[in-house]
Design a protein around this nucleic acid. Structure first.
Ligand code: FES
Ligand code: FES
Lengths: 132, 132
DNA sequence: TATAAATCGGACTAATTTAGTCCGCGTTTA
DNA sequence: TAAACGCGGACTAAATTAGTCCGATTTATA
């Protein structure tokens, strides 16, 4: 359990590789996928999502691809995971309020406390710890 | 993401309720499931798993059920989750060694470091924090 | 001693989530 | 204008999770 999804893993792999390139240089999805033996189309989704979120910049057209955003390493793992995979929460009632059994649920409060601590834990880990 | 499974949630709900009972008293699955509006058969699986793991004790036969094990609160959330849901790991290569892309994977080491920290985080949370 | 109430655990189905693919579109280079 | 690239929606496939069913065993009790 507690697995990150493949999409997120691929995103991290790409980020790490891009960071090893000369600053300002452009990497494209095909190259990234071949170099790391990961499915191109799925990686493409991850790249697009990161671009939308401002972690990387799109360079469109032929010879295009993505450039890394210089300050991305300051992003916390908490934010990164939430953007790539949605809210970090141990139970649904952390996010929504329509937990079907919440009335009779006796562990909602303590779990939400632990959840907050867990988020804090991940917010203290920067992407730089992974990609540098 | 990072959700615990329903089975684990049901297990915790049952534990918490059982702890509120007079010590030594027996609770059965039907009662627990009705009281908390959770699927009986699925809860039953959770109870059986906890019994096998020694968190609770089976009282078999008619008028049977489960008794809580006095020292269960000392269990860490890390152990509990691993027993209920398997290894806590952000990526498969934490558990096994046959990660298909591990050769070309550039983030395996840092993720494993973070994973170890995460396990430490959960090992510092006791079940008592949830069920007391 | 028969019956009912309970756990046990395997096998099964259904639902949900994750993984991966396909394709038509817009943009830019050459 | 053709080729190389990202965009994003729609789709299928695979895997995991949730939930159900049932036959077997144990025990209390009528
Ligand atoms: S209803 Fe959300 S933890 Fe139980
Ligand atoms: S192969 Fe395990 S993290 Fe990439």
């Amino acid at each position: 359990m507690m697995k990150i999804t493949k999409k997120t893993e691929y995103a991290l792999i790409a980020l790490k590789y891009m960071q090893s390139l000369e600053s300002g240089s452009v990497a494209n999805t095909t190259e990234l996928s071949e170099r790391h033996s990961i499915p191109r189309e799925l990686l493409a989704k991850a790249m697009q999502q990161m671009a939308r979120s401002g972690f990387i910049q799109t360079v469109s057209g032929a010879k295009g691809g993505y450039k890394i955003n210089s300050d991305f390493t300051q992003i916390s793992m908490d934010s990164f995971l939430e953007i790539m995979e949605g809210p970090l929460s141990l139970v649904i009632c952390t996010e929504e309020h329509d937990c079907p059994i919440q009335e009779s649920c006796n562990i909602s409060k303590p779990l939400n406390t632990i959840n907050a601590k867990m988020k804090l834990f991940f917010s203290n880990i920067s992407l730089a710890e992974i990609t540098s």
